[in-house]
Amino acid sequence: MRRLVAFCSGSLFGVGLLLSGMTDTSKVQGWLDFFGNWDPTLAFVMGGAMVPMFIAWRFTEGRKPIYAEKFPSRPQSNIDRDLILGSVLFGVGWGLAGLCPGPAIASLGFGGSQSALFVLAMLLGMRLTPSIRLQISSSSAT
């Protein structure tokens, strides 16, 4: 059943990304073009996605997931260097190409070689992260 839930969730996520315009890089970059010809669409996407999730989080209190033992515990609330540095680098990449991880994967079936190339580079970046992270922390410790 966990797999069925995962499949339905992934499918719904994919179609949602497609319909909302998140897989259209011109809409994403248009939304980020705050000082130019601003496209507000993504604000509606974000707002729309928040509503069910806000209710879902309320629903988790005092309950257990249907097919798991417990809900994810609240992460520690500290804002550290990795969070800031990672988010900024992600934002630069997002602005450059107009793709973030979910829409990039969702567009693999119809996005041609551009989506494929972006995803390959993204996977490489993810693969290299643990070793780069080690180097950053060891160089800042000395």
């Binding site: 990795d82 992600f90 991880p101 551009q114 580079a121 780069i132």
Partner: peptide, 15 residues
């Protein structure tokens, strides 16, 4: 495309 992919991959995992 390659530069953006690398940044998105590394940045999201770091964050």
């Amino acid at each position: 495309l390659i530069l953006a992919g690398l940044l998105v991959g590394f940045g999201t995992r770091l964050a």
